[in-house]
Amino acid sequence: MDPFVVLVLCLSCLLLLSIWRQSSGRGKLPPGPTPLPVIGNILQIDIKDVSKSLTNLSKIYGPVFTLYFGLERMVVLHGYEVVKEALIDLGEEFSGRGHFPLAERANRGFGIVFSNGKRWKEIRRFSLMTLRNFGMGKRSIEDRVQEEARCLVEELRKTKASPCDPTFILGCAPCNVICSIIFQKRFDYKDQQFLNLMEKLNENIRIVSTPWIQICNNFPTIIDYFPGTHNKLLKNLAFMESDILEKVKEHQESMDINNPRDFIDCFLIKMEKEKQNQQSEFTIENLVITAADLLGAGTETTSTTLRYALLLLLKHPEVTAKVQEEIERVIGRNRSPCMQDRGHMPYTDAVVHEVQRYIDLIPTSLPHAVTCDVKFRNYLIPKGTTILTSLTSVLHDNKEFPNPEMFDPRHFLDEGGNFKKSNYFMPFSAGKRICVGEGLARMELFLFLTFILQNFNLKSLIDPKDLDTTPVVNGFASVPPFYQLCFIPV
């Protein structure tokens, strides 16, 4: 058959498939802009700032609406009420993970971030239990974070109060905490193996944040037939998995079943207990991918939040002064901060919360999916439909947070200066898919920041009023603009 005829037939089939998918069930789905064949609503979305586009569309179609990214149908949730109703009140029905062709290629359905069903539930339950087990290797997770915080302070001392970009050092600290939990080992910041790991993690975040990856996920045929950065992403992930597998083999040879040292040991012990169960989800494949998931999810998000926190503290020296006064009063100079201190430091706690609220790190979270046909607000959402959640619409709700575009710790303080919780605080998402490392991340943010401010004054290279804190939105995360500062020993 003539190649031209084959091409026309293929394009015609794709067009018909697109029209059929977009028209099927439209009477039951939430409203939304009319999609174009094949490309859907992509032309109506700013790929570099999806969150802003969703906010604009919500003003037209309401808090629940339908979009098509290519052939992929998505239902968008915008605003606290619908997000709570879906992710919390109907948590089980909305607990699936959205379709990610690239991740599915890399992870093969294993791990904790992109798995679904029984596998996801069992691996998540085990990971939560293990991360909360403060007795691994007779050292609590808090001990590990405190140790890394001391190392971080010593690295900052080496800058000798000269101007520096904190990106690298602030990236090393949370990565080392995860390494300590998974591998029972922290690395020197100049260790070549550690630097290679950091390089792969950072490069992957840069790649994932590009519009090209959005295109690959919406048109998965590209993955096999086109060159691009997605190939580098898959190569980096394969490198990390190979490295983790080597460490798993080392653990198998040296493990003491009665004295687990780290996450890998705990997983291997669980595998041993379930070795007679042919349906067990505790396999080497799941261990390797879960460890890679924890490394990827637990490094860049925390380091970016820390980097943004220091920029905001530079911009608002009056806030920094209040935090340091609270540190001096509650902790002093002669001991290290600990998590028990947080309950006695409402202002510092409010500042950490406000940093996370203000920066809105992951504006749309990772997409969910419905696990069955769901009736939601008089609409029928078919099983498997991807759910896109606007966390921006919750964290920047102007009824809950007056002047949401302003950095103001009073958003989390009552009139008496006591810490005030808010149900709208969802930087880790909400419901059954809430970030498994939430507790660890909150511990790291509090301890790293208090250790830094206990030991250093922060000095800006320019007038604080002239510092730009506008986030650089890159399609996946909101990151701070480049800046330098000086760490002046107190």
Rank of each mutant, 00 (worst) to 15 (best):
V6G: 13
L7M: 13
L7K: 04
L9W: 15
L9A: 14
C10E: 00
C10Q: 00
S18V: 11
Q22S: 10
P30Y: 02
G40Q: 01
L54A: 04
L54T: 02
L57Y: 10
I60D: 10
G62Q: 00
P63M: 04
P63W: 00
V64K: 00
T66I: 05
R73F: 04
V75A: 03
Y80L: 04
V82L: 07
K84W: 07
E93Q: 15
P101G: 12
A103Y: 14
E104D: 11
A106V: 11
V113F: 06
S115T: 14
W120P: 02
F126M: 07
F126E: 04
M129D: 15
F134N: 14
M136E: 12
M136V: 13
D143E: 10
A149W: 03
A149K: 00
R150D: 08
V153T: 08
K160M: 11
P163W: 09
P166S: 06
P166M: 03
C172I: 06
P174H: 08
C175H: 06
V177R: 01
V177E: 01
I178D: 00
S180W: 08
I182T: 06
F183K: 03
Q184V: 07
K185C: 10
K185L: 07
K185G: 11
K190I: 10
N204V: 08
I205Q: 15
V208E: 07
S209V: 09
Q214L: 10
N217P: 06
N217V: 08
D224A: 08
G228N: 05
N231E: 09
L233Q: 04
M240L: 15
I244F: 09
E246Q: 11
E246L: 14
E250C: 14
H251E: 04
N259Y: 06
P260C: 06
K270C: 09
M271C: 08
E272N: 10
K273Q: 15
Q279V: 12
S280N: 11
T283G: 07
T290N: 02
A292S: 15
L294E: 01
A297T: 06
T299A: 12
T301N: 06
S303W: 09
L306G: 00
R307F: 04
L312G: 01
L313R: 01
E318Y: 10
Q324P: 00
E325M: 09
E328S: 14
R342C: 10
H344A: 12
Y347L: 05
Y347H: 03
A350D: 00
V352Q: 01
E354N: 01
Y358V: 12
D360Y: 01
T364L: 14
V370K: 00
C372I: 07
C372Q: 13
D373G: 05
F376Y: 08
L380C: 12
L380Q: 09
G384H: 07
S393E: 01
L395C: 04
E400W: 03
N403K: 10
E405H: 15
M406I: 12
S422I: 03
F425S: 06
P427M: 02
F428W: 05
A430V: 12
G437W: 04
M443T: 15
F446A: 02
D463P: 15
L467C: 07
G475F: 15
V479Y: 03
